[in-house]
């Protein structure tokens, strides 16, 4: 360990370069992860906020919630049979404020439920992000397809759907706007929710997220970038330590000749890898958390500390693998070869 630390101290620039590369790659990974998570929240917070359970869509809906219509009798039976079951509908739309300014929203309605705000007719509960657009409690909002007016009675935190703030309205108002009597989906919470109900197709929360247009594609692209960056950082470790090891083959040979164990040489390399990675990760975790606090309000960015810690562990594992692969050279080094190479 001492020898490893002494090399780091003596060759500061070399290790500083590797450290800064790891710092930049991990910082970029955390930022993209924050954006992916933020976009995911922005796209599907409404669904992500509900507890685990199953969503049921009409079998004829081709796994698209907007095409689904649950038969009213069947809905009543399900709500009666399963404790906590809720029927709900979601449709994209807009509301106009007093200045006739249009705001995109996702109208959500549901049967009586603890999962969503209970709103009376002609009332609306909005996602809190609409406060930033100047809407206050008591404001009156309108919709072209709705004969009445909505009075804003409250705001709900983090309730977005398909990148739009959610507007919770009553079933009666919803039915008037969209000229439909049936609800789109029934949600049954808990692990004992049935896998199949006649005429309906079941979806776990995660599966239901993928029925949201663009959700799957968006998340897949961002996650691919994240994992590419993780793999690239592993390769950087392997390449950097490979180059360092090539430079040090003579040294390793001499150390082996005087009796240093191969395992000690590996430990030296692992210690250096660990030191560089931990310092780089501490800096990038700190900076990304700071960014998370100062990120512009309109930017969908969410970076829980658990995510950064999980990614940090992945970086450490990948760094360890990369360094170890490059270290196979150490095992192959022959002392004699090093002695014959001359001065290091």
């Amino acid at each position: 360990m001492q020898m490893a630390w002494k090399e780091v101290k003596k060759s500061k620039m070399k290790f500083l370069i590797l450290g800064s590369i790891i710092f930049l790659v991990s910082f970029l990974t955390f930022i993209i992860s924050g954006l992916a998570n933020g976009l995911s929240e922005d796209n599907a917070a409404l669904i992500k906020n509900v507890p685990n359970g199953k969503f049921y869509l009409n079998e004829d809906a081709k796994q698209t919630y907007s095409l689904s219509k649950i038969d009213v009798d069947q809905q009543d039976n399900l709500l009666a049979d399963y404790n906590g079951a809720t029927a709900m509908s979601i449709q994209m739309g807009f509301v106009n404020d007093a200045e006739d300014k249009q705001h995109s929203v996702a109208f959500v309605t549901s049967t009586d439920s603890e999962l969503f705000p209970n709103v009376k007719d002609n009332e609306v509960v909005l996602d809190a992000s609409l406060k930033d657009e100047g809407i206050k409690v008591g404001d009156i909002l309108t919709n072209n397809q709705f004969s009445g007016e909505f009075k804003v009675v409250g705001f709900a935190e983090k309730q977005t759907y398909s990148h739009a703030p959610v507007a919770f309205i009553s079933m009666k108002n919803y039915q008037e706007i969209y000229r439909v009597m049936e609800m789109q989906t029934v949600f049954i919470p808990g692990s004992d929710s049935p896998d199949s109900i006649k005429g309906l197709e079941s979806f776990t929360n995660k599966e239901f997220l993928n029925t949201i247009p663009s959700y799957g594609a968006e998340q897949m692209s961002l996650n691919m970038i994240i994992w590419f960056l993780v793999v690239i950082s592993g390769m950087l470790f392997a390449i950097f330590f490979y180059m360092m090891n090539v430079q040090k083959i003579g040294l390793y040979g001499i150390l082996k000749a005087i009796g240093v164990k191969t395992s000690s040489l590996f430990s030296m390399m692992w210690y250096q890898m660990l030191l560089i990675t931990v310092v780089s990760l501490v800096l990038s975790v700190g900076l990304s958390q700071l960014f998370s606090m100062v990120a512009p309000a309109g930017m969908p960015f969410s970076l829980p500390i658990e995510t950064t810690l999980l990614l940090s562990v992945v970086f450490l594992v990948i760094g360890f693998i990369g360094a170890t692969i490059s270290g196979f050279q150490i095992k192959k080094v022959e002392p004699l070869q090093a002695i014959q190479q001359g001065e290091m």
Binding site: M3, K6, K10, I254, L255, A257, I339, E343, M344
Partner: peptide
């Protein structure tokens, strides 16, 4: 061991 070159560890 003493070799033709000293083969000292450069960072020690």
């Amino acid at each position: 061991f003493v070799f033709q070159s000293s083969h000292l560890v450069p960072f020690l």
